[in-house]
Design a protein around this nucleic acid. Structure first.
Length: 172
DNA sequence: CACTCGATCAGCG
DNA sequence: CGCTGATCGAGTG
């Protein structure tokens, strides 16, 4: 059975995010679209599925987002569906979720945790491929010299999120 | 399989 | 600062 994704709008203090749920959990999270009104995707889940679990996951996702925006640790988090990722990416993402709020790691440090010290650049690639930003805190990964590095959703988001966690160590 | 490209990093001028 | 080479995973043909 092809786990088609169910899009759900999630409103937060930072804008309206779009979550995509598979039958396993949260599979993707998009930043608020500027003005893109193209939600013309086929109306999935037409009638019968009263997705109780979707509603639960939505609530958990919103709670996690709110907590992160407040610089707190997200105690409640929906199940994450990483089935689309490669084994390497899953290992990287797994480490990302273990970074506590307010802490940062460098790409190289994550590579060391993977016991592949030279794979720093590959780690960067895995972070960029992360389908669930914010909740999988890819924004807590900086370059080795404490510089910002990059961010798929736009560097302003990365700054914003880090500022919320009182990380101001950015030596630009 | 060969080749290219990155959200890297350390070294050197 | 800015440039260069080394290295690794992933995508492409």
């Amino acid at each position: 059975m092809k786990s088609q994704l169910t899009p759900v709008r999630i409103e937060t203090a930072q804008g309206t995010f779009t979550a995509f749920f598979s039958d396993k959990g949260l599979a993707q999270l998009d930043f608020p679209a500027q003005k893109t009104e193209s939600c013309h995707r086929s109306t999935l889940a037409p009638s019968s599925p009263p997705p109780a679990k979707i509603r639960l996951w939505t609530r958990q996702t919103r709670a996690a987002l709110d907590a992160i925006f407040a610089g707190q640790k997200c105690s409640e988090r929906p199940p994450l569906d990483w089935s689309a990722g490669t084994p390497f990416q899953k290992r990287v993402w797994s480490i990302l979720t273990s970074i506590p709020a307010g802490r940062t790691l460098s790409y190289g440090e994550i590579a060391e945790k993977l016991k592949s010290p030279a794979a720093a650049r590959a780690v960067g690639g895995a972070c960029g491929a992360n389908p669930i930003p914010v909740i999988v805190p890819c924004h807590r990964v900086l370059a080795a010299n404490r510089k910002l590095g990059g961010f798929s959703g736009g560097l302003d988001w990365k700054r914003k999120l880090l500022a919320a966690e009182n990380v101001v160590d950015l030596s630009s």
